[in-house]
Computed example of a mutant assay.
Amino acid sequence: MEKSIENIWKEGFLKSDALVAPKINKLYSQKSIHIIDKFKRMMKINIYIILVFAFLNLGLYAALGTPIAGGIIFLLLMGGCWISIKRAKTLKNINTNLSSYDYIKSFKNWLSMAISNNIKMMRFFYPLMFLAALMPIVHALKAGEVTNKAIVNSGFHLIYGIPTFMWIIALIIAVLIYVFGGKIYKWDVHLVYGSVFKKLDELLADLENLRS
């Protein structure tokens, strides 16, 4: 190719009396739709993975002798999937007949709102997951004859057969997870969708530069 797509885009914008030349706008439309479709596919795959993990986790915790903990984590994961599916459906409300710039901006606004709402939920989700994940450890300490005898004879104040200071440490960690839940979630999201977000930001920056 004698000219890069970027140069063709820029020349098309400069030579056109309209804000966006039809051919250039079509290229941007295809690119924006491709990026957002990729996000939708990744979101769907992520939901399937969480669903599989939820059922496997249920069986694993039952095998460890803590089915209640498995049930709690299962319900948390299923609830997260249900919210994600419900939220994904709202993507259909974005008008696909908008210009590339407005379409991307609308998607970015949807994304910001979705992340903001998820942060509120994840502040409780992560600590509850953490506390539920500790139940097999508590069960193992109580079920083990040697460990249980050592704990009882340790002289520590006990709650449900576990030293009180261990409960306090677990509670402090849970509180810290709650406090930093937003940052943990953002890190988690960018770990999965970071490449898509980067391409989305680059595309939006190109459109804004050409508009100016």
Rank of each mutant, 00 (worst) to 15 (best):
I119K: 10
I119C: 03
I119H: 03
K120C: 02
K120V: 10
K120W: 07
K120T: 05
M121H: 08
M121E: 05
M122E: 05
R123S: 06
F124N: 07
F124M: 11
F124V: 09
F125D: 00
Y126P: 00
Y126W: 14
Y126H: 03
M129D: 06
F130A: 05
L131D: 04
L131H: 09
A132R: 09
A132I: 10
A133P: 05
A133G: 10
L134V: 01
L134Y: 03
P136R: 07
V138I: 14
V138G: 00
V138S: 03
A140E: 03
K142R: 14
K142N: 12
A143G: 15
A143D: 12
A143M: 14
G144E: 10
E145D: 14
E145C: 03
E145M: 08
V146F: 11
T147I: 11
T147F: 10
N148F: 14
N148P: 01
N148T: 09
N148S: 15
N148C: 09
A150P: 00
A150I: 10
V152E: 15
V152S: 10
V152F: 13
V152Y: 13
N153D: 11
N153H: 06
N153A: 14
S154P: 04
S154Q: 05
G155Y: 15
G155I: 08
F156Q: 06
F156I: 00
H157N: 07
H157I: 12
H157D: 04
L158G: 02
L158Y: 07
L158K: 04
L158H: 03
L158V: 03
I159V: 15
Y160F: 14
Y160E: 01
